[in-house]
Design a protein around this nucleic acid. Structure first.
Length: 280
DNA sequence: CCGCTGGCCTGCGAGC
DNA sequence: TGCTCGCAGGCCAGCG
C-alpha cells in the first residue's frame, strides 16, 4: 500500500489530531508479539497529557513530534495504515497495534496486517535523524522543486553504474519515497527500459527520469494515492492513482500508446512492469 | 563501504 | 473442497 505519496496522504489526513491533548497511547496485545514494536507500554505512558505538535514525513517514515523532546518514528511497512475513529467505542480494525486516545474525538488507531511496520520512541528529534535509514535518505521525491543537479550527482555514484535502473530506483538513498508502483510508472513516463544499466543512461535520459519521478509522485499525491485492495486515507477516502497507471499490474495488457503487450520482469525479487516498445 | 540472499509477516487468489 | 504456490504498495541483518 504505502509509498511516499500514500504516506504523505496519510500524514495530511492525520492533521486533525494535531494539537489535541492525549489521554494515552495504548499498545494492543498483538503489538507486543512483534519485535518491530519494540517499546513497552510503560514507555508510552510518558505521552499522556501531552500534545502532538507536528507530524512530519521523511521518505516513507512519519515522525510524531510532541510538546516534549521524545518523538515517535512510524513506518507503515507493506500493510500499515491509520484510521480516524470518529465515534465512541468504535470497533477497531483487525490487526490493530496502537490506539491513541484524546480528550475529545476523533481517536486514531494504527493497524498493520503483516506486522512489517514500526512504531518506536526516540529520545529526541536529533536522535531520530541519526537513525540509520533516515540519516542516509536520499532526495525527497516530493519536494516541490525537484533538485535535478543533486539527482544527477547521486545517480552517477559508482555503485549504481552496473545496476539495472529498475532496481536502483527502489534504493531510498537515491530518491526517497519511490516504491514498487511508482518505480514502474516513472520509468514508463520517461520511456526508459527498467533493465537498462545506469551507466548506459545518457544525460538526457537521466534528466527525463528525474522529471518523470517528480511528476509521478506529485500526481499520485493529488490522486490521494493508489488504492488496490483497501488503501484509504485515515479519514476514509480512496485513492484514484491506479486509474492512470500505465504499466503497473498490467502484465499481458496493451500499452495505451502503442498497443504492445506490457511485460513483467523480476528485479531484486520485486515485479517491474514496462512496455517493451515504448521503453528503450 | 558494496551487492546479494534470506528473512520478517499475513492473506488472497489461481491452479491443481 | 482443500491444498500448495506465488505474490503483495517495504525494509533489514548477515555474509563474503
Amino acid at each position: 500500500m504505502p509509498e511516499g505519496p500514500e504516506v504523505e496522504c496519510v500524514r495530511r489526513s492525520l492533521k486533525s489530531i494535531i494539537g489535541k491533548k492525549l489521554q494515552r497511547i495504548h499498545l494492543t496485545e498483538l503489538s507486543q508479539k512483534y519485535h518491530k514494536y519494540q517499546n513497552k507500554q510503560t514507555q508510552f505512558n510518558q505521552f499522556s497529557g501531552h500534545q502532538i505538535k507536528k507530524i512530519e514525513r521523511i521518505g516513507k517514515f512519519l515522525i510524531f513530534k510532541f510538546d516534549r523532546k521524545e518523538v515517535i518514528l512510524n513506518h507503515l511497512g507493506m500493510s500499515g495504515n491509520w484510521l480516524l475513529l470518529k465515534e465512541k467505542d468504535q470497533i477497531l480494525p483487525s490487526h490493530s497495534k496502537v490506539l491513541i486516545e484524546f480528550e475529545t474525538l476523533p481517536n486514531v488507531v494504527f493497524y498493520d496486517m503483516r506486522n512489517l511496520g514500526q512504531f518506536k520512541i526516540y529520545e529526541s528529534y536529533n536522535s531520530v535523524l541519526k537513525h540509520q535509514p533516515i540519516r542516509k535518505m536520499g532526495i525527497d521525491g516530493l519536494l516541490s522543486t525537484f533538485p535535478m543537479d543533486e539527482f544527477l550527482l547521486r545517480i552517477d555514484k559508482r555503485n549504481y553504474a552496473n545496476r539495472e535502473i529498475g532496481s536502483v530506483l527502489l534504493d531510498q538513498k537515491l530518491v526517497a519515497g519511490i516504491g514498487n508502483i511508482y518505480k514502474s510508472e516513472s520509468l514508463a513516463l520517461a520511456n526508459i527500459n527498467p533493465t537498462r544499466l545506469v551507466k548506459t543512461l545518457k544525460n538526457k535520459e537521466r534528466r527525463r527520469l528525474g522529471q518523470a519521478i517528480s511528476k509521478t509522485l506529485h500526481k499520485a499525491v493529488e490522486s490521494m494515492g493508489s488504492t488496490f485492495n483497501s488503501f484509504r486515507t485515515p479519514d476514509g477516502r480512496e485513492g484514484s492513482a491506479q486509474n492512470w497507471h500505465q504499466v503497473y499490474g498490467k502484465k499481458g495488457g496493451k500499452c495505451s500508446s502503442c498497443g504492445s503487450e506490457i511485460r513483467r520482469v523480476v528485479q531484486d525479487k520485486r515485479s517491474t512492469f514496462y512496455c517493451p516498445n515504448c521503453q528503450l
